Simulated scan of single mutants.
Amino acid sequence: MKAGATNSLVDVPGLRVGHAHRVGGGYRTGTTVVLASEEGMVAGVDVRGAAPGTRETELLDPRNLVERVHAVVLSGGSAYGLSAACGVMERLADAGVGFPVEGGVVPIVPAAVIYDLGRGGSFRAVPDAVLGRAAYDAAYDAAYDAAYDAAHDAGAGAGDGAGDAAGTAAPWANGSVGAGAGAVAGGLAGGVGTASAVLPGGATVAALAVVNAAGSVLDPHGGALAGTRYGLPGEFGHLRAPDPGEAAAWNPDRVTSFNTTIGVVATDVALTKAQCGKLAGVAHDGLARAIRPAHTMVDGDTVFGLSTCHRPAPGPDAFQDVLAAGADVFSRAVAHAVLAATGREGAPAYLDVFPSALGGKR
């Protein structure tokens, strides 16, 4: 296997990603949107945390009517942040994209949220419909499209795209952007992470994780990021095991009591709703490999499985390969989220705590 051109979710043909965030003035939060083409995408979901905040997940049950969704929203703000999906829904409706009904369309926009309330100083400084619209607009930013095209043509990564003054970030960005702007992970700064894999047959599988975990993202026997063990050749080659003294000294005492890791795992092969649900389920295996413990009483861990149906349906063996890759890309995405996150008071960056882990060029 190899990574896609940007090692991100947008390596899956047919997907767009937009990040928007607010930091300052009481805010430290944001929203991330995953968009499909006008035909939508097949979707499933697997909710394993005991404190989820979600919207429209019942529609993704294979027994229910709607076959395709038009966007998935991941947001900060706890239950308040679900309103960001309204802004995305408005943009889609204005574009005439949605489930056709008499008199118009109804966009289908499932969503999940993390708990980041008060991390910028104001408890009620949360994502809203305005931020949802900004995330949607960022997904169609022409400058980001040009950068993606250049990266794809060169067959190389597109850079970190960590953000700009407007409060948006490139679709392939890792770190404290979008829905991960206020995230923490086991006492460290958390954020958005993404990774992709192109399978030998040509199918692409990719993940985007918003890592805001109560559990530790570290190997239990040291300070290495647990998710890096599933990296592709060279992906985490600039890292090494941290000095044992740094690992011994790390004893976080400000781990928050409400958290949640959310995300999506997607592929371009045609899957049913039930198969998308299975893909979401194995992504939770990847989550649990990279975060310990996972699915706790104070986490609302939720993963959406998506298919853009750009390639034919896989046979049983090929579907097994997609599932295996789904778990691995989610583990890698968790590691990228923490590795790229920006440190702040009460939530230091990983490399600030474990500087010896940087064995090569940062």
Results as ranks from 00 to 15, higher is better:
1 M>G: 15
6 T>D: 01
11 D>Q: 02
12 V>T: 02
15 L>F: 00
19 H>F: 05
19 H>R: 01
26 G>T: 09
26 G>H: 14
27 Y>V: 12
30 G>K: 07
45 V>D: 08
46 D>C: 15
47 V>I: 15
48 R>G: 14
49 G>D: 07
51 A>H: 03
56 E>N: 14
64 N>V: 11
65 L>Q: 15
70 H>V: 05
79 A>K: 03
84 A>G: 09
85 A>L: 10
86 C>A: 15
91 R>I: 02
92 L>M: 10
105 V>H: 10
120 G>L: 03
126 V>G: 12
127 P>K: 13
129 A>K: 15
138 A>I: 08
139 A>P: 09
142 A>M: 11
144 Y>D: 00
144 Y>N: 00
144 Y>K: 02
146 A>G: 10
146 A>F: 04
151 A>L: 08
158 A>Q: 04
162 A>R: 13
172 W>S: 02
174 N>Y: 01
175 G>V: 01
177 V>W: 03
178 G>A: 03
182 G>P: 03
202 G>Y: 03
206 A>P: 01
209 A>F: 02
209 A>S: 05
209 A>C: 02
212 N>V: 00
224 A>T: 09
224 A>H: 00
224 A>G: 10
229 R>V: 15
236 F>K: 04
236 F>A: 05
238 H>A: 09
253 D>R: 14
263 G>W: 04
268 D>K: 02
281 G>I: 12
281 G>T: 10
286 G>Y: 00
294 A>Q: 02
295 H>D: 06
296 T>Q: 04
301 D>C: 12
303 V>A: 12
309 C>H: 14
310 H>F: 11
310 H>Y: 08
315 G>P: 06
318 A>S: 15
319 F>V: 08
335 A>I: 03
342 T>F: 02
344 R>S: 14
347 A>F: 11
349 A>F: 09
351 L>F: 11
357 A>T: 13
